[in-house]
Amino acid sequence: MNTESNTQPVIEARQLDLVFQTNDGPVQALKDVNLTVNKGDFVSFIGPSGCGKTTFLRCVAALETPTGGELSVNGMTPDEARRKRAYGYVFQAAGLYPWRTIAKNIKLPLEIMGYSRDEQESRVRNVLELVDLEGFGEKFPWQLSGGMQQRASIARALAFDADILLMDEPFGALDEIVRDHLNEQLLALWTRTEKTIGFVTHSIPEAVYLSTRIVVMSPRPGRITDIIDSPLPKERPLDIRDTPEFIEVAHRVREGLRAGHSDD
C-alpha cells in the first residue's frame, strides 16, 4: 500500500460481466465485478455456490471468457498471461495422472514448457521439499492419502516460475484435521515464496486464517458484496483463530454473506 502503490496490480477487473447461455436461458454468472489484487496479496473468494467465485478464478486463468468489462493479469489479457504461463492452478481434486509417479506428475508442466532434464530434476526436488513430500517422488498417486495427493498437486503448480497461484477449493474434499495442517503449510509456503494467491473457499475460518483480503460474493447474479482487508499480522499460528481480532473478521464475513442472502 505504500511503495508498491505505483506498481501495476497483478490482477485487475473492471466492471466484469459473464453471462452463460444455457438451455434454461441466460445465467448471469458475474455482474459488475471490480477488484484489484496487488503483488503478494493472499486473496480469498468466499460465498455460497453459484456466487461466481470459481467462475471469476477461471476467468483469470482464461478458462472462461468474460462477456463484458475488462480483466488484466500482469498487465496482459488473461489469455496472453496463460500463454506466458503466468500462473499455477490447483483444482478442487488433485487430478494427478494415475499412470505417472508423483515426481513425473510434477514434471508434467515442466516437460510441456520445455525445461531441460537437469532443471526438471532439481525443481522436482525443490518443490517436493517445499510441500513436505520428500521421499514420495517414486510413489504412484493412488498409493498416497488424499491430503498428500493435494500437496503433490500444489507442488505441481509451484514447479514452474509462475508468480500467481490460483487455488479453487483445494482443500474442500479433505477432512478438518488434514485441512488445518495444509492451511498452516500453505501460509508458510506463501511467506517463503511471496507469490500472489487467489483462493476460493466456502469455509469462513479458512478464508480468515489465510487471507490478507477476503472477497465476499453472493449469487443471482454473481457479484462482490464486500471486500475485507484483514488486520491480522502476517505471522499466524493456528491459535490465532481464538483471538478477538480473528473472531471479529469472521463475524464481518458472516454478516456479509448473510446480507448477500437477504434478497433471496
Binding site: 478458462l63 504461463r85 495422472y97 499412470w99 508442466p109 510441456i112
Partner: peptide
C-alpha cells in the same frame, strides 16, 4: 480425460499434441 484434467493442460498452455500424448492417449488406454 475429465474436464478438469483438460483444463489443467489448458493452464499450461499445452499444444494439441502435448495434451494428446501426455493426457488423452494414456487416459484412453
Amino acid at each position: 480425460a475429465t474436464a478438469m484434467q483438460r483444463d489443467l493442460m489448458e493452464t499450461y498452455a499445452a499444444s494439441y499434441w502435448q495434451s494428446f500424448f501426455k493426457l488423452r492417449l494414456p487416459a484412453a488406454m
